[in-house]
């Protein structure tokens, strides 16, 4: 039971990170109907920017941890957002309205490029960062078995919750959110009604990149080690999460992220670590076969 609880906490933490990345996938898919394959790479870039910013701050002599974390959070979000914007501008916008596979291929090309760009400029070796946020709250302690939730886990879960609430508000209540939903439904009509479609799509990429940057920072602080390749697997898992939750649905992305995180953690905890990815992907396949529109997606009615 204690073991189970501990795994549950770990799973929710991991799931929160996946969920944050998955939101980026789901928003972009919702608005322009493409898999932004480079989104995992944006997450990776976010974590690299956070790492470098952290070291730069240390070099400047700023060491008060809450301030440092706040600064690198903002820096990572701003710079990664610009990456997201530039990628859309360079690789996707010229292909808008073209046939569906073209942006998918540029996205894969972009993903390959970004991975190698980081590898070339920062080296292929892993970057370890010693744990910055230590300690935690002990929930249960009986006879040697301890269930603990670390402060880092609390930060991750709390940040994710706050961002989720903020985003739901943004999408459902603000003018920007309305414009986004309008573009999702019908871009031509939206543009006729005065919605700046290009700007709305750019902002969608910017928001997705911001969340990916947060996820990148969390990943860096939680696992303490990053390399140029972390984007691929995290990206595929997050996309899996988005599809699992029902692509296009924000709560779905979060739910899918949590599901993937939990499945992976429990599988590693109870069965085998080696096959955790197989477990996550198998669940995806099974869900899609029996529930093709995901957990919270709108069922697709075949129009004849």
């Amino acid at each position: 039971m204690e073991y189970f609880l501990q795994q549950l906490i770990n799973g929710i933490t991991l799931g929160s990170i996946y969920g944050l990345i998955a939101i980026g996938y789901t928003m972009v898919y919702g608005i322009i109907g493409m898999i932004n394959f480079a989104h995992g790479e944006i997450f990776m870039i976010g974590s690299f920017i956070a790492l470098t910013a952290f070291l730069a701050l240390a070099a400047l002599g700023i060491t008060f941890l809450p301030l440092v974390l706040l600064i690198i959070l903002i820096v990572a979000m701003v710079f990664t957002a610009l990456w997201g914007w530039s990628i859309e501008r360079v690789a996707y916008r010229p292909l808008r309205g073209s046939f569906r596979l073209a942006p998918l291929i540029t996205a894969i090309g972009m993903s390959i490029f970004l991975q190698n760009f980081v590898q070339v400029t920062q080296g292929a070796r892993v970057k370890p960062l010693p744990p910055q946020v230590t300690g935690g709250i002990t929930l249960i302690d009986q006879g040697g078995t301890v269930v603990q939730i670390s402060y880092m886990q609390l930060i991750i879960i709390a940040t994710t919750t706050v961002l989720m609430i903020g985003f739901s508000f943004l999408i459902s209540r603000t003018s920007l959110g309305r414009q986004q939903r309008a573009c999702e439904q019908d871009q031509k009509m939206a543009s006729l009604l005065g919605v700046n479609v290009d700007r709305t799509i750019s902002l969608t990429f910017v928001m997705g990149a911001c969340l990916a940057a947060v996820a990148g920072l969390m990943y860096l602080l939680y696992y303490g080690v990053i390399d140029f390749y972390i984007g691929f697997l995290a990206g595929v898992k997050a996309f899996t999460a988005a599809v699992l939750g029902g692509i296009g649905s924000l709560p779905g992305a979060m739910l899918g992220g949590l599901a993937i995180g939990l499945i992976e953690t429990f599988w590693s905890g109870y069965f085998s670590v080696e096959y955790k990815d197989v477990a996550a992907f198998s669940i995806l396949v099974i869900v899609l076969i029996f529930m093709p529109s995901g957990l919270l997606g709108r069922p697709e009615v075949e129009k004849v």
Binding site: Y29, V243, I247, F281, L284, V285
Partner: peptide, 26 residues
């Protein structure tokens, strides 16, 4: 199993199968 899936769902599931086979081989 992927027959009923369309478009991007098909893409992601085939990707997943590719990875599953690789992980099993590994």
């Amino acid at each position: 199993p992927v027959l009923r899936l369309r478009g991007d769902y098909l893409a992601i599931v085939t990707l997943a199968f590719g990875e599953i086979i690789r992980v099993v081989l590994l």
